[in-house]
Amino acid sequence: MTGAPKDKAPAKPKSATAKAVNGKMANGNGNGNGNGQTLARYEIRLSGLGGQGILTMGKLLGQALAIGHGYYVTQTQSYGPEARGGASRADLVVSSEPISYPKTEYLDLLVALSQEAAASYYSYLKPRGALLIDADLVRQSPSSVALALPFTRLAREKVGVPQATNVVALGAVAYLLPFARIEAMRKSLKESLPEKICDANIKALNLGYQEAKKRLGEPIALPDPGEDDVQAARMDLTEIMTED
């Protein structure tokens, strides 16, 4: 991304070590050491309705991947005008390299917790991208190969906390992503959530992970690095991306 040194260090860090602290180089420490997987640019969209905890889910997942695994992660979001009931989504780009363009362009994984989200965002998936939906809330799956689990029902019936839907889904994502570790998710959860609700959420996370393992088969395969249609597709997608 950048070979040339910055012309001027803005805040004049005192030493070389300090210089790295908040510079881009610093983030390179331990990059890509998750499971030893090197990631080019892996794009995830979590989507659903406002109030489902989509943004929290994005933050937890991003935090786990960035801090727990040491990947470069950018997480962006968009929210509907209403705090509840509007469309909500969180986008993540995960990479072993510093990330330039922070938004998602072309999704590797789409998680949709509402019918509307599944319908709206399906077209942004890569040809072999994975779609994970809430089995109950998404009545019409746009794809016959969608991965489906009843996250909301599991949260309500097995965890007893309907608000934990997002964390059940996070558990499933932790299983499906071949480069993610469940321990990192747990740590991220513990660091971010108030102690009171931590146990229920850990339970929800484990449940999501176990259910996914039981019912969704193997984790998603990473795209073949040699695949070159991605680049071409990206160029062609400029027009529809204007909506994004």
Binding site: A11, K12, P13, A18, V21, A66, I67, Y72, T76
Partner: peptide, 19 residues
């Protein structure tokens, strides 16, 4: 808005990091 609302990892500054 994008820079402000993007989450990324930073190393938290500690005393002495910056002049």
């Amino acid at each position: 808005e994008i820079t402000a609302h993007t989450r990324e990892k930073i190393e938290l500054p500690e005393p002495g990091d910056f002049e």
